[in-house]
């Protein structure tokens, strides 16, 4: 029992760290669903590409076991590489795989999304020969530096992850609620046809949404690489599932819901491990989803989603 209680602070820290990644991913899912009413199952694979782009940047900036520039600049370059790769990929996918199918059956883009994700995963497998790549996190964040709170160790990596994901979410919230693009996005998600009538170029809005959503996945990819210290071509699969779960949990289409769903899911996964063996952590996540859907079919913040969106 004592051992049980002693784990709680650390598991909460674990949950919040993981949750901030899930939240970023869930936001991308939710944004696309908001404007297009389609589930972008390729989102997890885009995240994987972002992780590899970040890894590529880091390896280019590394000579032997040392960075060729300051850690902060290198981190910036990694995030930039991740975002550039995923934004470009997101725009390309939208243009090639989804736009031609718009207006057709609702199933078509869904299948197309699955196809894109299979293509991306296999391409990554071929390019990496299926081998895992190591993120040299220790070059970016000091490994011997950490904050200790109530028995929990909070490493620099975790602090950076949480802080940047909160900052991104606040920024995104401001974009959506205060800018012209945000207004156009909200209008498109309310009624795309009507938005078109009042002069909103919905095609551009949709493309923009994909670019923003994919960029978030790119950031998340770099974060996860630094956090797990290892990536491979399969990381997108479970991350995509978790992000989808978080988005549904929060009420799909609702941005604040996605952020809340992500954090909650991360916490559920970590806290659940307190009671169940760690090997069941994914089962716990999906159990949370099922229970939520039974009690609140439209997700935690689903009601507001309809009123707001």
């Amino acid at each position: 029992m004592d051992l049980f209680l002693m784990q709680i602070p650390q598991q909460i820290v674990n949950g919040v760290t993981l949750g901030s990644v899930y939240a970023l991913l869930a936001l991308g899912y939710s944004m696309v669903y908001g404007v297009l009413k389609m589930l972008n199952f390729a989102h997890g694979s885009v995240f994987m590409v972002g992780a590899f782009a970040g890894w590529g940047a880091l390896s280019l900036l590394t000579r032997g076991n040392a960075l060729t520039m300051s850690p902060a600049l290198a981190l910036l370059a990694m995030v930039a590489a991740g975002v550039a790769a995923t934004a470009l990929l997101g725009a390309t996918i939208e243009r090639l795989a989804y736009r031609p199918l718009r207006g057709g059956s609702r199933m078509a883009p869904l299948i197309s999304a699955l196809g894109v994700s299979i293509i991306l995963e296999n391409a990554a497998m071929l390019l990496t020969s299926g081998r895992a790549k190591t993120y040299q996190t220790e070059l970016i964040f000091p490994q011997d530096w950490a904050v200790h709170v109530a028995g929990a160790t909070i490493s620099a990596t975790r602090i950076a992850m949480f802080a940047s994901s909160v900052a991104i979410m606040i920024l995104l919230d401001m974009v959506v609620s205060r800018t012209k693009f945000g207004r156009a996005m909200r209008a498109t998600s309310q009624d795309a046809e009507a938005a078109e009538y009042i002069g909103i170029r919905t095609a551009a809005v949709i493309a923009g949404t994909f670019i923003i959503g994919s960029s978030l996945a790119g950031v998340a990819g770099v974060m996860v690489g630094l956090y797990y210290t290892q990536i491979d071509f399969m990381i997108g699969f479970s991350a995509g599932l978790k992000a989808f779960t978080a988005a549904v949990l929060g009420g799909i289409g609702n941005f604040r819901g996605a952020a809340a769903g992500g954090l909650l899911l991360g916490l559920a996964e970590s806290i659940g491990v307190l009671i169940a063996p760690p090997v069941y952590k994914d089962a716990i996540v999906f159990a949370v989803l099922i229970v939520t859907l039974i009690l609140r079919p439209s997700g935690l913040l689903g009601k507001q989603a309809r009123a707001r969106a």
């Binding site: 051992l3 002693m6 784990q7 598991q11 996964e269």
Partner: peptide, 21 residues
């Protein structure tokens, strides 16, 4: 004794147990 799977990437939950033990 604890278990993970080959697909696991996040070991914080299990390592937290190790830390406390």
């Amino acid at each position: 004794r604890s278990q993970i799977t080959l697909e696991d990437r996040d070991f914080s939950p299990i390592l937290t147990r190790v830390k406390v033990a």
